[in-house]
Amino acid sequence: MTSELRPRTAVVNAPLWGGRARDWADIQEGQCRSVYVAAFDRLRLSPGCEHLDAGCGAGMAAQLSAGRGASVRGLDASPNLLAIAQERVPSAAFLLGELEALPYADHTFDLVTGFNSFQYAGNPGIALSEAKRVAKPGGQVLIVTWGTPEGMEAASLIRVLGPLMPPPPPGAPGPFALSDEPALRAFAIGAGLEPLEVFDVPSPWHYADLSTALRGLLSSGVAARAAAHSGEDAVNAAHSRVLEPYRQPDGSYTIGASYRCLTARA
């Protein structure tokens, strides 16, 4: 791992994912709550588990884990998100850092989770290898990514940002690159993990009104990148067009979304 790589993820992602930290915490992060719950149920998370949430965001997953009696630590690139995580889980230890250079000793954790985080690292393969390094031998590593885009309503909200983004680097993977099960299993194997079970969790997005939806959607790092390139008005207009078919009679919005989870053994 080069010294140039180490600061890249945090330098790039911190302002993108932390610029609207409260909107992320209050609106968008909760859209994945059912994924956290289903994953912890599947993993049989129990009291005393040493759990690292890598790319912990505003700490909702850490909060749910701590509520089950786990000893939780979290790492993220955004100071703004980490401040909210610490508010939510005062007993947990949260650190600012790089997914590609986790500041923990080898074989520390019973469980390492990456809820939509590893794929956003500057080098996802190194990030997942680091997760494997800090997991205890035989410990569990969880990778969560987007579900398959075919038939997923939320995929349209992701795709609409494509034309508003700066050109990606040559060969850069798309947002659904790991949604393919063989690719996801190969990703785990490449990091030295033993892939076990793949399961999908539906987690529809709900917004009370259009204003709330636009605030939540704009709080993601991907939308922030699009807004920096094409302008916030363009992003809101694109999101508004795609949202319109999902408007309910009461003015709320419900959009189908699903996530793919892989459990692996370190």
Score class of each variant (00 low, 15 high):
L178D: 03
A266H: 11
G97W: 02
T108C: 11
R44W: 05
N13W: 07
H51N: 00
P195R: 06
P149Y: 03
P182M: 09
L164N: 09
G69D: 01
V201D: 12
E50K: 12
A131C: 15
G125H: 09
S3G: 07
F115L: 12
M1I: 13
G147Y: 05
D53G: 10
A66Q: 06
A83C: 13
L178R: 10
P47C: 00
R68A: 00
K132P: 04
F94D: 05
E98A: 14
G19W: 06
A264Y: 07
R225L: 12
R159Q: 09
A127T: 05
L210N: 01
D233C: 08
A25T: 04
W205R: 07
A238R: 00
P163A: 04
S219I: 04
T212K: 02
G59H: 06
G171F: 15
A10P: 08
F115R: 10
R22D: 13
G48W: 02
A234E: 13
G174E: 04
V12T: 12
A191H: 02
T212L: 01
D110K: 08
L193R: 00
P90G: 11
E130M: 08
P245W: 05
F118R: 01
L81C: 13
A62Y: 10
I126D: 14
R20H: 12
L81V: 11
P168M: 11
Q248E: 15
T113N: 07
F176I: 12
E29N: 11
L243R: 06
E4R: 09
V12A: 07
Y207N: 03
N236S: 04
S65L: 06
Q28G: 06
F118I: 13
L102I: 14
E50V: 02
R241L: 00
L75R: 02
Q86T: 14
R133F: 15
S46C: 11
L111H: 03
K136L: 02
S65M: 09
G114Q: 09
W205F: 11
P202E: 13
S117H: 10
G18H: 06
M1P: 15
E130S: 15
A228S: 14
T263K: 00
R185A: 00
S219P: 14
R22Q: 10
P79C: 01
G18N: 07
A77G: 14
A85E: 08
L5D: 10
T254F: 03
R265C: 13
A21T: 07
L99S: 14
P103K: 03
H229I: 03
R44Y: 00
V89P: 04
V235F: 04
H51D: 01
I84G: 03
Y259A: 01
A172I: 08
C56R: 04
E98W: 08
V235M: 08
G74N: 13
R42L: 01
